[in-house]
Design a protein around this nucleic acid. Structure first.
Lengths: 130, 130
DNA sequence: TTGCCAATACGAAGACCTTCGTATATCCTG
DNA sequence: CAGGATATACGAAGGTCTTCGTATTGGCAA
């Protein structure tokens, strides 16, 4: 059997992953600061979360130094894809396209973003033809 | 103050809402059957869920007859929009457009669906110009 | 060396979700 | 009218998630 893919991150876990994706490998302390400091989240809370995430293989950990360094085990793109698929499954009968349309029509997107979507669409239709 | 909007549905709640959206107002028994019968979900489980959802105002209930009739309190479109916004917030820095792109590039969409997305895009860009 | 600060590990509390058992009421059939 | 089937109500168990307190260890400065 191959190494299992980790489960989808929970809410608090996703918050931490966002920090790790943005900052790259980080200490617990750095993650905690990025989350808004002690006002928002206690240090041991972040630590515990990272430990749990390590158990789930959502993050990797470098323990060579006393102060451990954590980094996301899975790129943002992959995780985002899986989150979207999950939502499509749960709320859109499995159709990611319907989900995408709901997303586009729900929030006002900038002209730049709309252009980017169109470019992507062009590419997808070309590939579909091929 | 105006009537509060209900919270986002949980997983099991969403499953039930999907039945109510598809079938319209239904009895507990009908929902349970639609979910795959007793093999999949016990009757009292569905009942309890609907009672909880009623408490959260996710569903409305007609109690005039002994056998209550439940219906979704919020249309599928609205709830889907809120679910998408929530995910955009949690995993895409608030950008629904980036979420849409991830959705489109993650799952193969049919040509029909791609056309529909393009049409929607046309409309959005027109409205943006206006 | 002693004592302090910072880090990790661990456990447990409290919240929410899902599931189901049981109690009770109501209806219908014979 | 009695008995069974079917309905609702309620409580509680078991799971997961998030939070934090406390214990312990390692390093460093005076």
């Amino acid at each position: 059997m191959t190494a299992r893919r980790p489960p989808l991150p929970t809410d608090a876990e996703l918050q931490i992953l966002r920090v790790l994706w943005a900052r790259g490998a980080s200490t617990v302390r750095a993650v905690q600061s990025a989350l808004g400091g002690a006002e928002r989240t206690g240090y041991t809370t972040v630590l515990k979360l990272l430990q749990v995430m390590h158990g789930k293989r959502l993050v990797r950990r470098d323990e060579r130094e006393r102060t451990h360094i954590y980094e996301a085990a899975i790129p943002a793109e992959d995780t985002q894809r899986r989150l979207v698929s999950d939502l499509a499954e749960r709320a859109f009968g499995g159709s990611a396209a319907r989900l995408a349309m709901r997303a586009l029509s729900s929030a006002p997107a900038s002209a730049d973003e709309l252009r980017a979507v169109r470019t992507l669409l062009d590419r997808l239709e070309r590939e579909g033809d091929a």
